[in-house]
Design a protein around this nucleic acid. Structure first.
Lengths: 213, 213
DNA sequence: TAGATTGTTAATCGATTAACAATC
DNA sequence: TAGATTGTTAATCGATTAACAATC
């Protein structure tokens, strides 16, 4: 039981691990075979102790004096982030942002594959965006059930977000990546990760206050 | 001296304040005149004590038994987030995401106004996107200086992000909102706020592991 | 007045940082 | 061997939560 137990990794560590992933990938591309916590810390303006702590969550061990095996480290981070699995996903809301996301070529590297998109606008339905079918939202529940979709992405306006979430949940979707600027009400067992632009923007504009003082 | 000092608000509180802002705005639209911490907590699945603590950072005081004056609360949050000022901003990288952002109509509500966009692709330069001029990146430094731009948004591919940042900094830009999946190296006095999709996605896909267990 | 809600002070919890032993 | 780097255990720091007094 306790062996099968999945360690819960603190969110701050998870977020840093994403950055380590980007960096380690780059370093491997440049020929690195071993990477020390000091290197990562220097590049990302962090503390090497913190980097080591984060890496410990992945379960791999490094070699004193050498650091971590680069490929092993990359693979371990991908395992933690679950990026070596691919989740099929639905996207609701084919406005500018939704379309931009459907065109983004690299989501498969991050464990995400769009298999269908939805919109309420009849002008848009039954077209294709970057090869992905756009269907009317009415069809979402049925299709999600049939295809056993686990992940939903919401790129609708704020007003439409809760309805999109409700349909996703009815269709059995368990995790929602929400870009709409509204907080979703969902049952306890459904995971919501908010990615509103306003959140990071608010932090930034607040800090702009302190500039020049 | 200590009166002019700007309180540094913890980032978790800032992020929650963004959500309070969305909610309070909605509640006012529905006619609310007074809003209690308990209401906010219930709607956003938080603890009312935490909500009160966060609101205290804005400096406003509520009335026992009534709650906070809704409009006063909204205004106070906007002041903290600096959303009642408008910062003119440059955007670099007019791909799908960049274009989507230039089309987004609500950034002025969040203190942001795009005044020019830049790209290295000559096919794109000297066109307009949503009325905003797209210029060649070469012109960025000169224009940023002339127009006293404080804020830059990077929506380039990873490889081009550092160069975009360097130009912005040379042009005197003090705060960068970075969407490219790479960590920027900047001088100490420059604020960088990362908004990579991969960050929230990594947290989400990690949590997807634990589902059904 | 009674009750609900705010605001403050103290306690807890978790993440970060420090110290140091282990090891290649 | 000496030195650099990992990994572990302890100390610190900051954010969250609890307890309770103040007040409308």
């Amino acid at each position: 039981m306790s062996k099968d137990e999945i360690k819960v990794i603190p969110e701050p560590s998870l977020r840093r691990l994403v950055h380590y992933h980007h960096l380690v990938k780059d370093l491997i591309k440049c020929g690195a075979e071993e990477i020390s916590s000091a290197t990562i810390a220097r590049e990302l303006y962090l503390d090497s102790i913190q980097v080591r702590k984060d890496i410990q969550f992945t379960g791999i061990v490094g070699k004193p004096k050498r650091g971590y095996n680069a490929k092993e480290l990359l693979a371990a981070i991908e395992t933690v982030l679950n990026w070596n699995n691919t989740f099929q996903a639905f996207l609701v809301g084919c406005g500018k942002l939704g379309r931009a996301m459907l065109h983004y070529p690299n989501f498969t590297n991050y464990g995400l594959e769009f298999v269908a998109a939805f919109d309420v606008n009849p002008d848009m339905t039954d077209t294709r965006i970057n090869g992905i079918s756009v269907l009317h939202t009415e069809q979402l529940v049925k299709l999600a059930k049939r295809m056993h979709i686990h992940l939903g992405v919401i790129t609708t306006p704020a007003e439409a977000a809760q309805e999109a979430a409700d349909l996703m949940i009815e269709g059995g979707i368990e995790a929602i990546w929400n870009f709409a600027p509204s907080r979703l009400k969902v049952p306890e067992n459904v995971i919501v990760e908010n990615a509103q632009f306003s959140e990071t923007l608010g932090v930034l504009t607040n800090k702009l206050k302190n500039i020049g003082r």
